[in-house]
Amino acid sequence: NQASVVANQLIPISTHLTLVMMRSEVVTPVGIPAEDIPRLVSMQVNRAVPLGTTLMPDMVKGYA
């Protein structure tokens, strides 16, 4: 099972991601792979992401 990136807190819209905001967890459905966490740092979310939500490629500007 592959770990995905999950929000560690509420991430407001247009926030630049930091390591503190993300954790890796095995979830269904599978989202952005956990090994991409370093790549996600300083990218922006294009919507509010609630605590515990799996980050999907379409939620992060410039990821997909």
Rank of each mutant, 00 (worst) to 15 (best):
L51F: 12
M59A: 09
P57A: 09
V20A: 14
T18K: 06
M59Q: 04
A34T: 10
V30F: 09
P50K: 11
G31T: 00
T15K: 06
M22V: 06
V20W: 12
P12N: 07
K61L: 15
K61C: 15
A64T: 15
Q9W: 08
V45I: 07
V30D: 12
R23K: 13
M22P: 00
V41R: 05
N1T: 15
L51K: 13
D58C: 15
L40V: 05
A48W: 09
V5P: 00
V45T: 10
V60D: 02
N46R: 09
E35F: 10
V49I: 12
T54D: 02
I11M: 03
M56T: 12
P12G: 08
T53G: 11
V5W: 00
V30A: 10
K61T: 15
I11L: 08
V41N: 03
V20Y: 13
T18L: 09
L19A: 14
V27E: 03
L51D: 12
N8Q: 11
R39E: 06
M56E: 07
I37N: 00
T15Q: 08
D36C: 11
V27R: 10
Y63R: 04
E25M: 11
T18A: 11
K61D: 14
G31W: 03
P38G: 12
N8F: 04
E35T: 14
S14E: 14
S14G: 13
A3K: 07
Q2S: 13
G52T: 03
S42E: 08
P57S: 08
N1I: 15
D36P: 00
P33I: 12
M43T: 04
L40C: 03
P38I: 11
I32L: 05
I32D: 00
M56L: 11
P29K: 05
L19K: 10
Q9R: 09
A7L: 03
Q44R: 10
S4D: 02
S4C: 05
P12F: 04
D36R: 08
A64C: 14
A48T: 15
A64W: 05
Q2P: 14
S24A: 12
G62P: 04
A7P: 02
V5M: 01
R39G: 08
V6K: 03
I13C: 15
V41G: 02
T15A: 14
L19V: 08
N8P: 01
N46L: 14
R47F: 07
L51W: 09
P57V: 06
Q2Y: 14
R39V: 08
A34D: 08
M56K: 07
Q2K: 07
A34L: 03
M43P: 01
T28L: 08
V6G: 00
D58F: 08
G31Q: 01
T53Y: 14
P12D: 11
K61W: 12
A7Y: 02
P38K: 10
D36Q: 14
N8I: 05
L10K: 15
R47V: 15
A3G: 13
T28M: 09
V60G: 01
L40T: 01
L10G: 12
T54H: 01
E25S: 09
M43K: 10
D36G: 05
M59G: 03
L17W: 00
A64F: 06
H16Y: 10
S14N: 15
P12R: 08
G62L: 07
S4K: 01
N1R: 04
L19P: 11
K61A: 14
T54A: 06
P50Q: 10
M22Y: 00
T18C: 05
P57F: 06
A64V: 12
V60C: 03
M43I: 04
Y63A: 03
L17E: 02
E35N: 11
V49W: 04
E25P: 00
P50Y: 13
V27G: 03
E25Q: 12
N8L: 04
N1F: 12
S4V: 01
E35H: 11
Y63D: 03
R47S: 14
A7V: 06
L17C: 03
